[in-house]
Simulated assay, not measured.
Amino acid sequence: MIKLEPFTPADFSQLIEWINDERLMKEWSGSLFAFPLTNDALEWYIEGANDLKNPDVLVYKAVDTKNGAVVGHISLGGISQRDRAGRITRVLVGDAAARGRGFCTGMITALLRIGFEELHLHRISLGVYDFNHAAIKCYLKSGFKQEGVLRDVVRHGNEYWSLVEMGILEDEWRTLHPKSKATV
């Protein structure tokens, strides 16, 4: 089981260790950060984050409740109270050995619970590169629907990457989680 806890400066070194090459950096952050990832960049990233009373962005580390190990990173940004919408960004199961063990689904479910039950959002979206089949499978399993593909949106080296746009609505969340309190 996954528990999300605020991402703080104490977590910077772990994330920097995980993001150990330029391609992974681009997959994880798009163009938000330049490689290599630095403490200064992460300080900027979390500035003003995690204020549930006036949320703009929530940035979390993912903790495996079985052993207390930090296994990943995830954020919910672009939060609009007016539109009751947000966007999941920067999803990473950090240790390659931990991938394929259900941590991604746990992280997504935990963040959707916050978005729909605590923030009372109506829609949560995300974008994933079309070659990231494991992530797409995780998002579909979590209830997201594919909404479209933005072709060749990012250039990395000599190749272009296309972005799969996905979204989930509060009613879809409630259908999957009937005990949910996500109503407004």
Results as ranks from 00 to 15, higher is better:
178 P>C: 04
59 V>D: 01
35 F>V: 06
149 V>K: 14
118 E>M: 13
160 Y>K: 05
114 I>G: 11
142 S>V: 08
8 T>S: 14
44 W>P: 00
143 G>E: 11
33 F>L: 15
109 T>H: 12
69 A>K: 13
18 W>V: 02
80 S>R: 03
123 R>E: 07
150 L>N: 06
134 A>L: 09
103 F>C: 04
141 K>F: 02
145 K>L: 11
81 Q>W: 00
102 G>K: 02
67 N>Y: 01
155 R>C: 12
53 K>V: 04
23 R>W: 02
37 L>Q: 07
106 G>A: 02
64 D>A: 11
130 D>N: 10
77 G>K: 09
143 G>Y: 13
27 E>F: 10
75 S>F: 00
76 L>M: 11
69 A>F: 01
42 L>E: 05
74 I>T: 10
171 D>C: 04
37 L>N: 06
12 F>T: 01
149 V>H: 03
148 G>W: 11
142 S>W: 06
131 F>S: 07
54 N>H: 14
91 V>C: 10
135 A>G: 13
86 G>I: 11
92 L>Y: 05
164 V>C: 11
46 I>C: 03
29 S>M: 07
8 T>Q: 11
125 S>G: 10
15 L>M: 09
136 I>A: 08
164 V>Q: 09
64 D>E: 04
64 D>W: 02
15 L>R: 08
13 S>G: 01
163 L>S: 14
62 A>D: 06
32 L>Q: 13
35 F>C: 07
174 R>K: 15
53 K>N: 13
77 G>I: 05
167 G>T: 03
141 K>I: 06
24 L>S: 00
33 F>A: 11
163 L>T: 11
147 E>R: 06
161 W>P: 02
167 G>E: 04
11 D>N: 15
33 F>E: 05
55 P>A: 12
29 S>L: 07
131 F>L: 08
133 H>A: 14
50 N>P: 03
182 A>S: 15
70 V>E: 02
180 S>T: 12
66 K>S: 07
107 M>Y: 04
115 G>W: 10
178 P>Q: 04
144 F>W: 13
13 S>N: 10
31 S>A: 12
138 C>A: 15
43 E>L: 13
156 H>F: 15
17 E>H: 10
54 N>Q: 12
105 T>L: 11
53 K>W: 00
52 L>A: 07
48 G>M: 11
6 P>S: 13
154 V>Y: 10
5 E>R: 10
65 T>A: 08
125 S>Y: 08
48 G>D: 08
101 R>Q: 15
139 Y>T: 08
1 M>H: 04
19 I>R: 05
152 D>W: 00
102 G>W: 03
147 E>N: 08
57 V>M: 14
51 D>Q: 04
156 H>P: 00
86 G>F: 09
106 G>S: 04
53 K>A: 07
14 Q>W: 00
156 H>I: 15
152 D>M: 03
95 D>K: 11
11 D>P: 01
117 E>P: 09
46 I>L: 03
133 H>C: 00
83 D>F: 15
161 W>M: 14
58 L>R: 14
152 D>E: 13
99 R>G: 10
104 C>S: 15
103 F>A: 04
171 D>F: 09
79 I>K: 10
103 F>E: 01
37 L>P: 02
124 I>S: 07
112 L>T: 12
21 D>H: 12
76 L>H: 05
108 I>P: 01
153 V>M: 11
4 L>V: 11
159 E>D: 04
